[in-house]
Simulated assay, not measured.
Amino acid sequence: MALRKTGVILINLGSPDKPDTPSVRRYLQQFLMDWRVIDIPYLWRLLLVYGPISILRAPKSAHAYQKIWRKEGSPLVIEGHNLAKRVGEILGADYSVHLAMRYGSPSIESVVKKMLDEGVEEIRALPLYPQYASASTASSVDELTRVLNKETSFPPLRVLPDFYDHPGFIASFAEVTKTFLETSNFQPDHILFSYHGLPEHQMKSADRSKSHCLQAADCCNRITAVNRFCYRAQCFQTTFALQKALGRTHEDSSLSFQSRLGRRPWIQPYTDFELPILRQRGVKRLAVMCPAFVADCLETLEEIAIRADEDWKALGGEALTLVPSLNSEE
């Protein structure tokens, strides 16, 4: 009797194939032409992405990727493949587990084709974004359904939900953090939870009531039916849960958002603005956790471990260390 397999797709955002300007330019064009990422009219988006961004940003981003690139390739892709392999070993022979990238390689389309050729009976997709966002989670589901809709027939699809406060996620990140701080003998005065930023208007568009999001300072302090899919609110809940797991308080740990792009207001507080504030408070030794990323990537390895570290030292800070992400740890 033929083995009935369940296909599992672990979806992450993506990475260029190489850390050179042409490869990064192709990646940025694919990434930023997604209307969920830059949600302006198509013509303006086309002019922006293929104009200033392709000309000016691609070389700078390529230089940044070169700083963190491994001999085997992109850290995000390497850790993703290692994770898929380990998940497959844990689930066993009844499952076919693959990594797919929303942008770049391996593409969602190529992985779905492989699974359909294998004859899987069901496809389960896990977007590897702990917190829900239209620009990441919804975009990945968009692409997955677009690919399947090209097929005459396909097996049932199940998309697993966000896991911003899942006990397993919180416990794993807390354990990685404790182990890292102990083995590196680093005792931070403060832990900064730095998340990827998003434009404010994307938070407001997720508020179907149009009367809650960013209307009060404490609007993200708890999850309700109104802000169930609010990225900022979910980041707050992840932070609260990790603070509890690590025995931290609001005095010796805090939250911020990094990676702004463009002139429109992004969700606050900003990571680069928080660094001088923490120095003014007397913080010397700072640990930075990035719980929006399940694997280390450009935003953690270059933006935090290199650039933020340089900024911190320029401010007179004694030491800044990046706490590794979950990557493919057991």
Score class of each variant (00 low, 15 high):
residue 2 A to C: 02
residue 2 A to M: 12
residue 4 R to V: 02
residue 11 I to H: 07
residue 12 N to F: 04
residue 13 L to K: 10
residue 22 P to M: 11
residue 26 R to K: 14
residue 27 Y to F: 15
residue 29 Q to R: 15
residue 29 Q to H: 12
residue 39 D to F: 03
residue 39 D to N: 14
residue 41 P to Q: 10
residue 41 P to D: 08
residue 44 W to A: 14
residue 45 R to K: 09
residue 47 L to T: 04
residue 52 P to A: 05
residue 53 I to M: 02
residue 55 I to V: 11
residue 60 K to D: 00
residue 61 S to V: 12
residue 61 S to Y: 00
residue 64 A to Y: 03
residue 66 Q to P: 06
residue 68 I to L: 06
residue 68 I to C: 03
residue 70 R to N: 06
residue 72 E to G: 05
residue 73 G to D: 03
residue 75 P to K: 13
residue 77 V to R: 14
residue 81 H to Y: 10
residue 83 L to R: 15
residue 83 L to T: 14
residue 85 K to F: 01
residue 90 I to P: 00
residue 94 D to W: 01
residue 94 D to P: 02
residue 96 S to L: 15
residue 101 M to S: 02
residue 102 R to E: 01
residue 103 Y to N: 11
residue 106 P to Q: 11
residue 107 S to T: 07
residue 107 S to A: 12
residue 115 M to K: 11
residue 119 G to I: 02
residue 120 V to I: 09
residue 121 E to Q: 14
residue 121 E to T: 10
residue 122 E to T: 05
residue 123 I to W: 08
residue 123 I to K: 11
residue 124 R to H: 11
residue 130 P to D: 04
residue 134 S to P: 01
residue 136 S to K: 08
residue 136 S to M: 08
residue 138 A to Y: 06
residue 140 S to L: 03
residue 140 S to G: 13
residue 141 V to L: 14
residue 159 V to L: 04
residue 163 F to Y: 15
residue 166 H to E: 12
residue 169 F to R: 09
residue 173 F to Q: 13
residue 174 A to N: 05
residue 176 V to C: 08
residue 179 T to R: 15
residue 180 F to C: 10
residue 182 E to D: 14
residue 187 Q to N: 14
residue 190 H to D: 06
residue 191 I to W: 08
residue 194 S to V: 00
residue 194 S to M: 03
residue 198 L to T: 12
residue 200 E to M: 15
residue 205 S to N: 12
residue 206 A to S: 13
residue 208 R to Q: 13
residue 212 H to N: 11
residue 212 H to W: 15
residue 214 L to E: 08
residue 215 Q to C: 05
residue 219 C to E: 02
residue 230 C to Y: 13
residue 230 C to I: 09
residue 238 T to W: 06
residue 240 F to W: 10
residue 244 K to T: 08
residue 245 A to I: 09
residue 247 G to P: 05
residue 248 R to N: 01
residue 249 T to V: 05
residue 249 T to H: 09
residue 250 H to E: 14
residue 250 H to Y: 14
residue 257 F to D: 07
residue 262 G to I: 04
residue 265 P to S: 03
residue 267 I to F: 09
residue 268 Q to T: 10
residue 268 Q to K: 15
residue 270 Y to N: 10
residue 272 D to P: 00
residue 273 F to M: 10
residue 280 Q to Y: 00
residue 281 R to Y: 00
residue 283 V to N: 07
residue 291 P to D: 03
residue 291 P to K: 09
residue 296 D to S: 07
residue 300 T to W: 09
residue 307 R to K: 14
residue 308 A to I: 00
residue 309 D to S: 12
residue 310 E to V: 01
residue 313 K to H: 12
residue 318 E to S: 10
residue 319 A to T: 10
residue 322 L to E: 04
residue 322 L to N: 07
residue 327 N to D: 07
residue 328 S to R: 12
residue 329 E to A: 13
